[in-house]
Nucleic acid binder design. Structure first.
Lengths: 363, 363
DNA sequence: CTGCCGCGTGATACCGGTATCAGACCGCAT
DNA sequence: ATGCGGTCTGATACCGGTATCACGCGGCAG
């Protein structure tokens, strides 16, 4: 059946009829293009006002081929990190007249592919993607979008197999700095709550690096930063101190508990995610340990809570809003005609030193 | 200029040509309606596959008058509460084939009006709104949407002036229960971190109630719950113990600090929002006080952090995901043809008792 | 007075789908 | 052989905008 426009708003033809002018004249007036004499313009405007006319953006998009809509694909809107990112994206795109369709993938590549299809179908003008794609076999959907002329900008996670603009932070340096702070305080047994899904638990440094290569760029960089700091201090790497596998809070509790029960137990823990920190805190409590004296702590993703903990936590603060804003800006510039730089736009995070790091107990 | 379809995907006509059939036949096959012989169907499918055909959802919407898109208006995507809500909304609407456009208003009514206009223009099929509208003079934009045949469902905040479906929690009872727990523990000087913007600080109970009537429904209900508990216990209401005005963390620190410095100081604090709790915690630290012994604490909006605080915090957990899911479900049912019930759908929150409430010090 | 120019306006062909409907084609009965 | 009914298919008119273009009309030069 054709559209049931029982009560839908008036069309431009109806406005034209009401104003007693041709459709094209009404369109020119309301669309703000071409020339219309002041007199007719006034009549059209009055008619539109009277009828409560609102242009149908769908029809306009059909005609112009531009939807003024951006598609955003993130792992999880419920995650404060992505929520902040989204805020940055929508603030700056709104300011430039673009709206946003958001899709969550929950780290599932299938979902991500489905999401790009939806966005292609809806003819978004561009996409901002925080992709779960790991290697060149998993980027076909993003290539498909680009082949259709839809610019794609990556955010938070670069994808090595794709030569695209990516807005990220200096994960490697950030991780390295955090671990250096721990080392400077005297720690040598430093737990690393990492957690990308891997086939089997890596036993050697080589295996670990190999696992990183098949995982999220962000995770790989953070691992490298951890290793960098260890190497510089000539601290031998111990695979038992890094947690792999899904990073749910429950698993973190178990894994950190394990590291705490080791004969030569961990005296410091570095977490690569918010959930990692809450899980670690629970593991500490369970083990009857406290920070910073029994165990020193540094985590990723600062929040209001981290500052009110007793003692307050030393955290890495990511510029979430800026990350989103920058991604939107890069995309919007491309849509505005700028040639894609196809480069990494790296923003700086900040290590906020509070009171969760102290020297290890005499041992 | 007409659309520059330089590299945009193939159209149904191109698929038809490739398959050597008429446009209508290709449309029937790809659109999944009408009849097509198995043979032609196969040819069309093959052609579509070969060309990488994807239907243009815009064109389809134009023709059918249905966009399969929901508009969501919330105060702030960055707020964990709304982020959770959004997750509930998008999970259930995705499952039913609907996508979501999200707009943040930052509690600004102007922004909210602009947001509804955007959604009307984009011809969303329905809207889920967490409105900042306070009274009957501020709901014209929502009425306008409804007049155009766009169903609206309210979430988190009911609007008295609007006879619409609203999905909310039992704010009054939740607040009452929390305060009752505090009273049962022996507290009589209970601070209330409330915080709706008001013209002048209410000095009497009457003025306070009047202020509540001109504010967010949610805030009003929570105030009533606070008052209910006080009344039942015959505890006189003291306007000095309720914070009004913008509820930024900074202001909470100041206001709670004030209540803590009162000659007959507060021995318990009840916060109506997450930011309220972190602010209160900072005020406590500043005053050199600790909980639960110096001050008992209960807050709204549980989080992973609240559980790992030392001692862990007693909090009210809202069913955020369910709230969003239910709102989407109600809206989708209406879109599916169900008559709007125009009622309040009330979900239950849960008071999670942990260790931030103790009896007041001997005084 | 005629012709040309240019301005302002309205008719109209798109965009890419959906949905109606006419008609081609086939089989079968008369 | 003709007529009739039913299938299956393709032509075509929408949806509501945008953009091109032709045309009417007035002014001015020849």
């Amino acid at each position: 059946m054709p559209a049931d426009r029982g009560q839908a708003g008036p069309t431009i033809s109806e406005v034209a009829a009401e104003a007693g002018v041709g459709r094209a004249t009404a369109a020119r007036t309301l669309g703000g293009y071409g020339y219309v004499s002041p007199e007719l313009r006034a009549r059209v405007l009055a008619a539109a006002e009277k009828l409560g006319y609102r242009a149908n953006a769908l029809a306009r998009s059909m005609s112009t081929g531009v939807s003024h809509t951006l598609g955003v694909i993130v792992a999880d809107i419920g995650n404060p990190f992505f929520a902040g990112l989204l805020r940055g994206i929508s603030d700056t795109s709104r300011a430039r007249g673009f709206d946003v369709i958001v899709l969550s993938t929950y780290e599932n590549l299938q979902e991500e592919v489905a999401a790009t299809d939806v966005l292609i179908d809806k003819r978004v003008d561009g996409m901002i993607v925080s992709s779960a794609a790991l290697d060149r076999n998993q980027v076909a959907h993003l290539r498909a979008a680009m082949d259709r002329g839809i610019p794609v900008v990556l955010v938070d996670r670069a994808v090595a197999a794709l030569d695209l603009d990516a807005v990220v932070i200096e994960n490697r340096e950030a991780a390295r700095e955090a671990v250096e702070v721990l080392i400077a305080a005297g720690h040598r047994r430093i737990g690393f709550v990492w957690g990308p899904p891997v086939a089997k638990v890596p036993a050697t440094r080589r295996e670990l690096l190999a696992a990183a290569a098949h995982n999220l760029w962000t995770d790989g960089e953070r691992l490298r930063g951890y290793l960098d700091a260890l190497d510089d201090a000539h601290i031998p790497f111990d695979p038992e101190l890094v947690m792999v596998g899904p990073k749910t809070e429950e698993r973190v509790v178990g894994e950190v508990g394990r590291m705490l029960a080791l004969p030569d137990r961990v005296t410091a823990v570095f977490c690569t995610e918010t959930d990692g920190m809450t899980g670690t805190l629970r593991a500490l409590r369970k083990a009857g340990l406290s920070y910073p004296d029994d165990v020193a702590l540094i985590g990723f993703d600062d929040s209001a809570w981290a500052a009110v903990m007793e003692p307050p936590l030393t955290m890495i603060a990511q510029p979430v809003h800026e990350l989103g804003a920058k991604a939107a800006q890069v995309l919007l510039d491309i849509l505005g005609g700028a040639a894609p730089a196809r480069e990494m736009h790296t923003l700086r995070s900040r290590l906020i030193q509070r009171a969760s790091v102290a020297a290890p107990r005499e041992g």
